[in-house]
Amino acid sequence: MPEGHTVHRLADAFEQGFGGRRVRVSSPQGRFAAEAERLDGQVLVEAEAVGKHLLLGFAPSADTALTDPAVSFVHVHLGLYGSWTFAGDAGFASAPAIGAPRRRVGEVEGDLDVEQDWRRLVPRATVRVRIAGPDGLADLTGPTACELYDATQREALLTRLGPDPLRRDADPSRFVQKVRRSRSGIGVLLMNQDVIAGAGNIYRAEALFRARLDPFVPGEHLTASLVEGIWEDLSALMDYGARTGRIVTTEPEHRDIEARIVERSRGTRQNGDDDPAVVPREKSFYVYHRQTLPCRLCATTVRSAELAGRTVFWCPRCQSVRSRRAVWSREHPAAAWALPGEGLGSGTAGD
């Protein structure tokens, strides 16, 4: 499932490819046909990401205010199997595909030159929504949710979700308060989108390692400063992810230590994996998918367990904090973190 930074990149791709343009909207699959007919010929006035949710605002004209009742919002949650794929003129969108399975539009068209002949591309029967503008198109397949919202429903979604570290209007105090009032483990809370929107399984594992925090410690046992530190670290990590399409949490001096990862059958794929200039995935994480391998910092075997419906990964030695009364010090030799810098390498198109 795409993490929040990916959905923000998706919103940027829509702004770049369709923002302020009148578009054609269709539903080749038929499951969004009535809604598509209503939106067809309108202008995309906004593409907005909040956590793992994408909201595309459509209006009769480009100067329609977002508060106008005439504005409708397509709400999309990709889930595990959803994806948007793009095709168009050179420079049309910032990514050819976002989500799973990351197959580009037209890959089944044989020798067709997608960039030159994108207008001739016939949508697959599984395409829920096709949006086509003057410079390109985008196809949606396999989403968990694809529905039409009005302004009230959009506002209700924004109110329900926790603060998103990538949004300018985010209020980190909401995150801090919800964590410190909960008896649930911090590893559970970081996966709860009503507590913090956009963090997924990779960010959960890596942020907790960087904080030296045991995933099972109850939120109510944590100090405000510690929870604020998690927010600040996630904000920096996710901002890097939004800019590059890659999750990289390791510091440069740690990347060549035990540079291994326990791959699944499909592998932990990231944007730009084929680019030798970026940090390879086996060097990108401290604990995520490194179960049974030595910790990069202390050589203790990294562990894994089921938590909140997903597998959590942690180092039992480095992450030993279980309460605010436990001994914890930022002077731990491996506890001083620099933020990911531009030297990490930039991603290429595709997420």
Rank of each mutant, 00 (worst) to 15 (best):
M1S: 07
G4R: 08
V7I: 15
R9E: 12
A13G: 06
Q16G: 04
G20T: 12
G20L: 13
V25W: 10
V25P: 04
S26K: 00
P28V: 13
E37Q: 13
D40R: 08
G41S: 05
Q42V: 04
Q42G: 07
A47V: 06
A49H: 14
G51S: 08
H53F: 15
L54G: 07
G57C: 06
D68W: 12
A70M: 07
H77E: 09
Y81V: 05
S83M: 10
A87L: 10
F92H: 12
A93I: 14
S94Q: 05
A100S: 13
G106Y: 05
E115D: 11
E115I: 13
R119W: 02
V122K: 05
R124N: 12
V127R: 02
A138S: 06
G142R: 11
P143W: 11
T144Y: 15
E147Y: 06
L148I: 09
Y149F: 15
Q153P: 09
R154G: 07
L157R: 08
L157M: 13
L157E: 15
L157T: 13
L157N: 11
P165A: 07
R168Y: 12
R168P: 10
A170P: 00
D171Q: 09
P172N: 04
V176T: 13
V179N: 07
G187Q: 02
M191I: 01
N192P: 00
N192I: 04
I196V: 15
G200W: 01
N201H: 04
F209Y: 08
F209C: 00
R210Q: 04
R212K: 01
R212A: 02
L213A: 02
L213V: 01
L213Y: 00
D214L: 03
D214P: 00
P215H: 05
P218V: 05
G219I: 03
E228A: 08
S235K: 14
M238I: 12
G241F: 02
E251T: 15
E253L: 14
D256V: 09
D256Y: 10
I257K: 12
R260Y: 04
S265A: 12
S265Y: 14
V278M: 08
V279P: 00
P280I: 09
Y288G: 01
Y288V: 10
R290F: 06
Q291D: 15
R296Y: 05
R296W: 03
T311P: 00
R317M: 05
V327M: 02
V327C: 02
R330H: 03
H332P: 00
P333D: 07
A338E: 12
G341H: 04
G343Y: 03
G345F: 10
D351L: 03
